[in-house]
Simulated assay, not measured.
Amino acid sequence: MDINKLEEIIKGHKKFVITTHANPDGDAIGSVIGFYHLLKSYGKEGKIISHSPLPEYLLFADTGNLLEWYSPGKHDEFISQAGVVVCLDFNNISRIHSMEQAVRASSAMKICIDHHQLPEDVFEWIYSDTLASSTCELVYRVIKAMNPNAFNKDAVQALYLGLVTDTGSFRFDRTTPEVHRMAADLIELGADMMLVTRNIYETGTLGRMKAIGEMITTMQIYGDKSEIAVIHITRDMLNRYGMSPEDTEGFEQYMMMINTVKVGVKIVDLKEGFKSSLRSKGAAEVHLIARKFGGGGHKNAAGIPKLFTPVDSFITEIVGEIKKYLSESKNEENQ
Score class of each variant (00 low, 15 high):
2 D>Q: 11
7 E>H: 00
8 E>H: 14
16 F>S: 13
34 G>D: 11
39 L>V: 06
42 Y>N: 05
42 Y>C: 04
45 E>P: 00
48 I>L: 06
52 S>F: 00
55 P>T: 05
56 E>S: 14
57 Y>H: 14
63 T>R: 15
65 N>K: 14
72 P>D: 03
72 P>V: 00
74 K>H: 06
75 H>D: 14
77 E>H: 07
82 A>R: 05
87 C>Q: 00
89 D>A: 00
93 I>K: 00
101 Q>K: 15
102 A>E: 03
104 R>Y: 01
105 A>W: 05
108 A>E: 04
111 I>P: 01
114 D>A: 07
119 P>I: 02
121 D>S: 07
121 D>E: 13
124 E>W: 00
125 W>S: 03
130 T>A: 09
131 L>T: 14
136 C>L: 09
140 Y>D: 07
150 A>M: 03
151 F>S: 06
151 F>N: 07
164 V>L: 13
171 R>T: 09
171 R>W: 04
177 P>L: 06
186 L>A: 04
187 I>W: 09
191 A>N: 12
198 R>V: 13
211 A>H: 04
213 G>P: 06
218 T>A: 09
225 K>G: 01
239 N>T: 12
239 N>C: 10
240 R>W: 08
244 S>P: 00
246 E>I: 03
252 E>W: 03
253 Q>R: 11
257 M>N: 15
259 N>Q: 13
261 V>R: 14
262 K>Q: 15
263 V>F: 02
264 G>K: 08
267 I>F: 05
267 I>M: 10
278 L>R: 04
282 G>R: 12
284 A>H: 10
284 A>R: 08
286 V>W: 09
293 F>G: 09
294 G>S: 05
294 G>K: 11
297 G>A: 11
306 K>L: 07
306 K>V: 09
320 G>Y: 09
326 L>Y: 08
331 N>H: 11
332 E>A: 13
